[in-house]
Computed example of a mutant assay.
Amino acid sequence: MTNVKYHRVVLKLSGEALAGETGFGIHPPVIKEIAAQIKQVHDLGVQIGVVVGGGNIWRGETGAELGMDRAQADSMGMLATIMNGLALQDGLEHLGVEVRVQTSIDMRQVAEPYIRRRAIHHMEKGRVVIFAGGTGNPYFSTDSAAALRAAEIDADVILMAKNNVDGVYNADPNKDPNAKKFDELTQLDILNKGLKVMDSTASSLSMDNDIPFVVFNMAENGNIKRVVEGEKIGTTISGGKE
């Protein structure tokens, strides 16, 4: 393996990232760009798991705010993540990358069921594994799914790819020109400062299992590879309690 900082990673992608400028649905050119960035990392010999959100198609929390039953709305959101996972699989396979989609909701005609040992086996064989369907339970975000899967497969880091935001700030940098960017934080800093990086369940889970996060801008081509190689970009959030 090429000299890299992280050898097994979970890449967390927002569903909105797949929509491009349209803001809704799946935009094939964007899928192609993201797949190319993932392939750059795969070519280094890094083992990769991917968790993708579903907000470009459906967001359960929004449905609940509109009067839907929350569990029902979240189930729809989990199905949206599976659609995104299949689209990303197609993009990667067009580049010659071997991929498996594993779902927390059983649908064997289109994907494998999530089985921890099988996922690890696939990654050890050089396959990218896309973890779709969130945790399989309502009331849990795909941030929580990323933290859970990272703990289960013993990942070195969670790479939290953001759209046009190059790290964690103390205020919205798009609205406040004086917003300060943090280069390094701890999970306790995230909780104590009320920084909106991930939901509190994901933050607590990653802290309890000592899993670091790196928050970075994926809109700049090659950034995923730069993070994996140890370049100091974005914000690194240490996983431990210290």
Score class of each variant (00 low, 15 high):
V10H: 03
K39R: 14
V30R: 11
L205T: 14
S206M: 11
I48K: 07
I34D: 06
Q40K: 15
M218R: 12
D210C: 05
G194C: 00
L86H: 04
M1E: 14
Y139E: 07
P138D: 05
V99N: 04
A119D: 03
H94D: 12
D43L: 03
V157K: 05
K196Q: 08
L159Q: 00
D189K: 00
R116Y: 12
Y6F: 15
K193V: 02
T103A: 11
E98K: 12
K175S: 06
I120S: 04
R149P: 11
K196R: 12
T201I: 13
Q72Y: 11
D210L: 09
N163W: 08
I105W: 06
T81N: 07
G91L: 12
E65M: 13
R100S: 15
G240D: 15
I31L: 14
R149V: 02
I26M: 01
E98R: 15
N164C: 13
K181R: 11
Q37F: 07
A202M: 02
G239S: 02
Q47Y: 03
W58A: 03
M1I: 15
D176K: 06
V41C: 04
G67W: 12
G23I: 10
T236Y: 13
V52H: 05
N84P: 03
E65K: 15
D69Q: 11
F140T: 13
Q187H: 14
D210E: 14
N84V: 08
E220N: 14
Y139R: 15
L44R: 01
E231C: 01
Q89T: 12
L159Y: 08
I31Q: 08
G85A: 08
T62A: 03
E33D: 09
N221L: 14
P29V: 15
R149L: 05
V214D: 00
V157Y: 09
T22Y: 13
N174W: 14
G240S: 12
K175M: 06
D176L: 00
T103K: 04
L44K: 01
